[in-house]
Amino acid sequence: MDNQFNTRSMIFTLYGDYVRHYGNVIWIGSLIGLLKEFGHNEQSVRAAISRMSKQGWVQSEKRGNRSYYSLTEQGKARMEEASRRIYQTAAPHWDGQWRMLIYNIPEHKRNLRDELRKELVWSGFGSLSNSCWITPNPLEEQVHRMIEKYDISDYVTFFKGTYEGMGKAEDLIYQCWDLDEVNDKYSEFIKEYSEKYYIDQHLIEKGSMSDGECFVKCASLVHQYRKFLFIDPHLPEELLPEKWLGNSAQTLFNDYHDLLQPRATRFFEGVFE
């Protein structure tokens, strides 16, 4: 298997899709064994998990001479949110309100500002102007978690209200997000993965695909689809363009995932400790 996936994001995928359903804890040896299937070596797995530990996503615990890694509270919250968005079946309903976050972070904390920007994009905020971010989704909980995580309550103002003009809500949307580009990416995903889906469906029916292959394909599918969390703000239906491909991509993802999941899980359970 060529090593086309970043080790750290692959670990996130495995925690999100498997480990969190098995008590959130995994022995480092199991993690190394699972990631070997994707062409990652022991050294890169240890380096990536150590980095995730420093960033506060996982914590380690020694049992005898073995190291086990579990998700922290911050890690669990991130996985819950990612999972809710990856497996959601319909666009959220809009309450007509906009959330607006404005920050003024001093120059000497510039790296904090960069981190916050990445986090806002991941959560689905769009940049209306410099340091002013908006979303139509009820992300109050995520915002408060973010403020606490980065300890920036002194630099942040957060509002909720209605948009009073001067244009239409669609103008706001196009100012903050490039939905045409997101739609193009969904189109590419549908084209590539509908072909793979039919081929694999046929192979599984014939019984000529191993559990290990299903595991690799399933994790790779989730890994690819997870990328949409960084570019699709998951806007409410009322604010989406007419020919939106997000729903078709979601259906394809769900069907393909359901096809691979039982055998993939069986493989995971064989290696997991």
Rank of each mutant, 00 (worst) to 15 (best):
L34I: 05
E37Q: 15
D17T: 14
E73R: 12
H21G: 12
T72S: 08
R46E: 13
H40A: 07
L172P: 04
E80D: 10
L179S: 02
L235I: 04
V143A: 11
F268P: 02
E192M: 12
P236C: 01
S127A: 14
S83C: 01
Y15A: 00
L112K: 12
G39I: 15
L139K: 15
D154G: 08
L112Y: 11
G64F: 10
M209G: 07
S60P: 09
A91H: 06
M79K: 09
P241V: 05
G124P: 00
Q142V: 06
R85I: 08
E80M: 06
E119Y: 04
L35D: 05
Y155L: 12
K109W: 04
Y256L: 07
S44T: 15
S127P: 03
M1D: 05
V222C: 09
I28C: 02
Y256S: 06
R113H: 09
G64R: 09
Q97I: 11
E42T: 10
I105D: 01
M100Y: 01
L203E: 06
D180C: 02
L240S: 05
D95Q: 04
S129M: 14
C132D: 07
L179K: 01
M166F: 09
V121P: 00
R263K: 15
Y174N: 07
P236K: 00
Y256K: 07
C218P: 00
F230L: 11
A90C: 10
E213I: 12
T7N: 13
L34Y: 03
L245Q: 10
A90R: 13
C218K: 03
K160F: 05
Q142R: 12
G124Y: 00
V19R: 00
